[in-house]
Simulated assay, not measured.
Amino acid sequence: MATINDLVLVHIENKPAFFARINDINADVKRGWYQVELLVLGLPLQSIVWILEEGHLQGEEFTMGGAPVRLELISPKIKLSPPPAPESDSKGKIIPLKRKP
């Protein structure tokens, strides 16, 4: 479940739309709903508040104005693939960093 300070990718109409950080989550007056403050990570920075259920913070799809919307939690431990190994067929010149006496 996404919570305060988590990074989420917001999908609108089943397409990635923008990244946002969850700044705050407060109970709404309607039981089971929450006021979720999102900091939209774009230029200019923008703060929005959406009223969502707990399931929406767990990735369940919901609609806004008839458009399907979904929050995808971005893991802080993103694994990057290692860079490709350099090709061995090219012969480079070795330049010493220290002069020989």
Rank of each mutant, 00 (worst) to 15 (best):
M1W: 10
M1A: 10
T3E: 07
I4A: 06
N5L: 03
N5W: 02
N5P: 01
D6H: 04
D6V: 00
D6L: 00
L7C: 00
L7I: 00
V8R: 00
V8C: 01
L9P: 00
L9V: 00
L9S: 00
V10A: 03
I12S: 03
E13C: 08
E13K: 12
N14T: 04
N14P: 01
K15Q: 11
P16N: 08
P16R: 08
A17G: 02
A17P: 01
F19I: 01
A20N: 07
A20Q: 03
N23T: 14
I25V: 14
N26E: 14
A27I: 14
D28W: 10
D28Q: 12
V29N: 14
V29I: 11
K30L: 13
R31V: 15
G32C: 11
W33E: 06
W33L: 14
Y34V: 09
Y34P: 03
Q35Y: 05
Q35H: 09
V36L: 07
E37A: 13
E37V: 05
E37C: 06
V40H: 03
V40M: 02
V40N: 01
V40L: 02
L41F: 02
L41I: 05
L41D: 04
L43E: 14
L43P: 07
L45Y: 14
L45C: 12
Q46V: 03
S47F: 02
S47D: 08
I48P: 02
I48S: 06
I48R: 07
V49Y: 02
V49D: 01
V49H: 03
V49P: 01
V49E: 02
W50G: 03
L52I: 09
E53T: 12
E53A: 15
E54M: 14
G55K: 15
H56Q: 14
Q58W: 09
Q58K: 15
Q58R: 15
G59F: 06
G59H: 04
E60G: 04
E61N: 04
E61Q: 12
E61W: 05
F62R: 10
T63C: 06
T63V: 04
T63Y: 07
M64G: 01
G65D: 07
G65H: 07
G65R: 11
G66S: 11
G66K: 11
G66R: 13
G66W: 06
P68E: 07
P68V: 06
V69M: 10
V69N: 06
V69D: 02
R70T: 04
R70D: 01
R70M: 07
R70V: 01
L71P: 01
L71E: 03
E72T: 03
E72R: 04
E72F: 02
E72Q: 05
S75V: 01
S75M: 03
P76W: 01
P76Y: 00
I78G: 03
I78D: 01
L80E: 10
L80N: 12
L80M: 14
S81W: 10
S81V: 13
S81P: 13
S81R: 15
S81H: 13
P83R: 15
A85S: 13
P86S: 11
P86I: 11
E87H: 14
E87Y: 13
S88K: 15
S88P: 15
S88V: 11
D89R: 15
D89C: 09
D89V: 10
S90C: 08
S90I: 15
S90Q: 13
K91M: 11
G92I: 12
K93G: 04
I95G: 06
P96V: 09
L97A: 13
L97Y: 10
K98G: 09
R99A: 11
R99I: 04
R99C: 07
K100E: 13
